[in-house]
């Protein structure tokens, strides 16, 4: 296994790490950078628990190699609240009880953040299809969908 020396931006900070060719970004985040807020539910791209933003797009960090991340900008759940203030999505998830066990939550929040960047006023159907890559086994999705739509409304209101 060859080693790679990678520098990237994580949550706005420059970071450097060494990784094997086979190690994924998820491995790197969790074990090298100790950002354990990004969860591993499957490792095969099917659950979305590992969702982070890479250069602004939501990706499954389990399906990206650490070695591919040179100069990339990564946003994880740890960087979502800024300056002690929760992101509207985080706040709405709490307000709507959109989590039970919470293990799917970091991935869903990141996916929702990317979604709202593309579409600031999504319909229920758009939210549901937008989150289809994020499994939640606890909530039945109802409150998650409501929270995302409410956060979208709040973010629209803040902008105007």
């Amino acid at each position: 296994m060859s080693k790679h020396f990678v520098s990237a931006i994580v949550n706005g900070d420059e970071v450097e790490f060494r990784c094997d060719s086979g190690e994924t970004l998820l491995d790197v985040l969790r074990t090298k950078l100790y950002l354990t807020g990004t969860k591993n539910g499957c490792g095969t791209g099917d659950c979305g628990a590992c969702t982070v933003l890479m250069n602004g797009r939501a990706i499954n960090s389990c399906l990206v190699l650490g070695a591919e991340c040179s100069d990339m900008s990564i946003e994880t759940i740890e960087g979502m609240a800024v300056g002690g203030e929760l992101h509207p999505l985080q706040q709405k998830f709490l307000d709507h009880a959109a989590l039970q066990c919470g293990v799917c939550t970091p991935g869903i929040l990141n996916m929702a953040k990317a979604l709202l960047k593309e579409n600031s006023n999504p319909s229920e159907t758009e939210v549901r299809f937008g989150l289809a890559g994020n499994l939640c086994r606890c909530t039945g999705y109802d409150k998650i969908v409501r929270a995302v739509m409410d956060a979208a409304a709040e973010m629209r209101a803040r902008r105007t």
């Binding site: 979502m80 985080q90 709490l94 989590l99 970091p106």
Partner: peptide, 10 residues
């Protein structure tokens, strides 16, 4: 929820 903030911030 008492554990809420910890769960939405990772």
């Amino acid at each position: 929820r008492p554990d809420g903030v910890d769960k939405v911030t990772g």
